[in-house]
Write a protein that binds this DNA or RNA. Sequence first.
DNA 1: GGCTGGGCTGGAGCCAACTCCAAGTGTTAT
DNA 2: ATAACACTTGGAGTTGGCTCCAGCCCAGCC
Lengths: 127, 127
Amino acid sequence: MTIKEVSEKYGITQDTLRYYEKVGIIPPVSRTKGGKRDYREEDLGWVEQAICMRSAGVSIDALIEYLKLCQIGNETISARLNLLKKQRELLFEQKQRLEAAMDRLNYKVSVYEEAEKTGELIWDKEN
Amino acid sequence: MTIKEVSEKYGITQDTLRYYEKVGIIPPVSRTKGGKRDYREEDLGWVEQAICMRSAGVSIDALIEYLKLCQIGNETISARLNLLKKQRELLFEQKQRLEAAMDRLNYKVSVYEEAEKTGELIWDKEN
DNA sequence: GGCTGGGCTGGAGCCAACTCCAAGTGTTAT
DNA sequence: ATAACACTTGGAGTTGGCTCCAGCCCAGCC
């Protein structure tokens, strides 16, 4: 699969794909004889993983660290487990914040929907 | 309340508080005769709101826009409602991404926990 | 009155994560 | 074989959101 196809498949730019490889959150991608990237099944797995984690807010640094550990070998299994648990915890905290904000937004939306009918805002409490 | 007290109360720097006011995601804060910020109940409401929204990932631009609309008056109620719904939708989408990543992490953690016992990794599928 | 400490401003600097670019190479269609 | 186009690289530039700084002001205390 060419870089173009991959970028279209995942809705991500070619630049970003090259960037991810350059900084090392995905391993070096297979190449054609001419030196062009030729994404295989395995490469796509890493791409998907990178996109999924990045879109949830996992840092580039954490992903670089994870790939490094993977490339070392089985002696890094517990280090990888630690890293994964840490990131999971961070995402969990982020989810809490997200939900807190959504609660606030839901309340506001309900107040504003009421206000649209009456033309006047009535707050339980400002914000 | 001084800026120092507010920054300690919410665990945010004084610089950030001033920055939020400067860009306009909170309205101008009340001042003492000497020109120092003196946060009142109402100011704190805005501060809380800003912190809550920002920590969930709502953009500065959206918050600026919201405050602008608030300052215009009741004729912007439906515009504000639109804005709030849009942001709620964005947060909802972000929550989906977060959960997708958490699912992936949970799966990996379980695989790695198994691997720690056996010393060998067995993947259902790479990544 | 002088010192100390907190606060003020405008503007520069920083960081993460892309995003864009120039200059060159490879591949394909006519 | 030559145009047209995809792809390559290293490195510079951009963006969002702070973060830091210099130089100043003001209030309280000895």
